[in-house]
């Protein structure tokens, strides 16, 4: 049985269908990628899984059980999310300490002090960052705080919505390494959404390509690395990710 199973998911925003019949499954401990361009519905799939977007038709199963709407409180201890823009995902008036203690307070944890210190340690931020406000942090540090917040409830599944696309290349590498290490240490399951094929190829064992709210094709990492795509759209994406190629030879 798959850990997460999405069957014929449809998400409507008013009359507009953002996701039109998407199905996939993710195994325990696996890292699964969703690739697409803006408006492909890739982020909406993620938001539907965690209940931020409505499930208009179809079903989402976690551990074989259909998820209820609104989600049961226990759901949030098993599934957490990291957002794209580290500048928008932290409350501007809350210190790192408050950001991390809030989920612990909601779920009634006792040993908050130790957990906060540990969480900061795990994402490579020392004690010195604990009482800073977001505006005192760089983009990469903010994203580390966001990852610490997602992990502090010790979830099994992490939903990653373009976690590095707002970061500089060198910071991206650091955050990707961090995510990679945490997954290895804790046996986490990832669903990673990105527009960047290289990031998905680096992070995920399997991936699907989406366009206009539908699945174009599903690939394994090996097939992606061999450029063994059957659909023309996937091939376009692969070509575009290699950079610019002039039409004619340069003079």
């Amino acid at each position: 049985m798959s850990l997460i199973q999405v069957n014929d998911l449809v998400v409507m925003f008013g009359p507009v269908a953002a996701v039109r019949g998407v199905s996939f499954h993710v195994e325990e401990g696996e890292s699964y990628g969703i690739v697409g361009e803006s408006g492909s519905g890739k982020s909406t799939v993620l938001r539907a899984i965690c209940g931020l977007a409505p499930t208009s038709a179809g079903e989402i199963r976690l551990d074989g059980k259909v998820l209820s709407a609104p989600r049961h409180p226990d759901f949030y201890r098993r599934v957490q999310m990291v957002f794209q823009d580290p500048y928008a995902s932290l409350h501007p008036r809350h210190t790192v300490d408050r950001v991390l203690s809030e989920p612990l307070a909601i779920h009634g944890f006792k040993d908050r002090e130790a957990r906060i210190e540990q969480a900061l340690e795990d994402v490579g931020l020392g004690h010195g960052f604990r009482f800073r406000y977001p505006h005192q942090l760089s983009g990469g540090q903010r994203q580390r705080v966001a990852i610490a917040r997602a992990l502090i409830l010790e979830p099994r599944v992490l939903l990653l919505d373009e976690p590095t696309s707002a970061l500089d290349a060198s910071i991206q590498a650091e955050v990707l390494n961090l995510l990679d290490r945490l997954r290895g240490e804790r046996g986490l399951t990832y669903i990673l959404v990105s527009h960047d094929l290289a990031v998905v190829a680096h992070m995920c064992e399997r991936l699907m390509v989406m366009q206009h709210g539908q699945v174009v094709e599903e690939l394994t990492r090996a097939r992606l690395q061999a450029h063994d795509a059957t659909e023309p759209y996937t091939r376009d994406l692969l070509l575009a990710s290699e950079g610019y190629r002039p039409l004619t030879a340069r003079a």
Binding site: G51, L52, R77, M81, D85, S89, H91, I106, R149
Partner: peptide, 10 residues
């Protein structure tokens, strides 16, 4: 996003 994030923490 930061309100979505806190909603997602239950």
């Amino acid at each position: 996003d930061f309100i979505s994030a806190i909603r997602l923490q239950g």
